[in-house]
Write a protein that binds this DNA or RNA. Structure first.
Lengths: 120, 120
DNA sequence: GCTTGACTTAGAGCGCGCTCGAACTCGCAG
DNA sequence: CTGCGAGTTCGAGCGCGCTCTAAGTCAAGC
């Protein structure tokens, strides 16, 4: 798979994919074809999709790097990786709750406008 | 109320409060006491808390400014303000859904670790 | 009178996560 | 042979939202 195809499949840009690689987020740098172009496997793409989803939930690049570092060290780190994900999960749940709470106040404000405008 | 008290009540820092003022997020600059210090009213604090909550839900500074600009123009803009909030609300709801979706994938990944580790 | 502490200003600096530009190399189609 | 398009590298630049520094003012307490 070319970098453009991975970009397509993950929703990231080719620029970002190279940046992620540079910054140590891939398990290993994808090998190159004869022309020097990166050749990604499906597993690479799956890994990157996971990264992308973790980013989507607000995990920092540093967090992703920690996770990648663990993953690179093999199955000894299953427990640590699971813990990392669970800790992150808790963060996300808290964030969602905070969002819902803030949203309730926004809703309240909208209601006030309804009343001010005569409940049209 | 002093800037420190508003900071306390809103969870923002005094630095940030001055920054928000500079950047046009307040309805009007708070008047100064004899010593040149800002004197905030409860209504100021309420407004800032709303700003803070909107920020908390991911509204950009530019979005807050648009909202503040409308608010400053008086009751003619009730409808516009309500629309702005409702549009933002929709964004937030979408974001929450996306978070939950991404979270489901993280959960799935955690389960995989459970299995790999023998469901301890 | 001096220190302390809370405030003031203008403006610089920063951390994050990209994002882009410039210059280059390939392989291929016309 | 000449483009063209897709890739490459390195490094700079950027947008956002603060965050902080430096230097100053003022009021109150010792």
């Amino acid at each position: 798979m070319t970098i453009a195809q991975v970009a397509e499949r993950t929703g990231l840009t080719a620029h970002t994919l190279r940046y992620y690689e540079r910054t140590g987020l891939l398990l290993e740098p994808p090998p190159r074809g004869g022309n020097g172009h990166r050749r990604y496997t499906d597993r690479d793409a799956d890994w990157i999709r996971l990264l992308s989803r973790l980013r989507g939930t607000g995990m920092s690049i540093a967090g992703l790097r920690r996770y990648a570092d663990l993953a690179r060290r093999g199955e000894d780190t299953y427990a640590a990786r699971k813990e990392l994900l669970e800790a992150h999960r808790a963060d996300v749940v808290a964030k969602i709750e905070q969002l819902q709470d803030d949203l309730a106040h926004v809703d309240y404000k909208v209601e006030i406008y309804d009343k001010l405008m005569g409940e049209r």
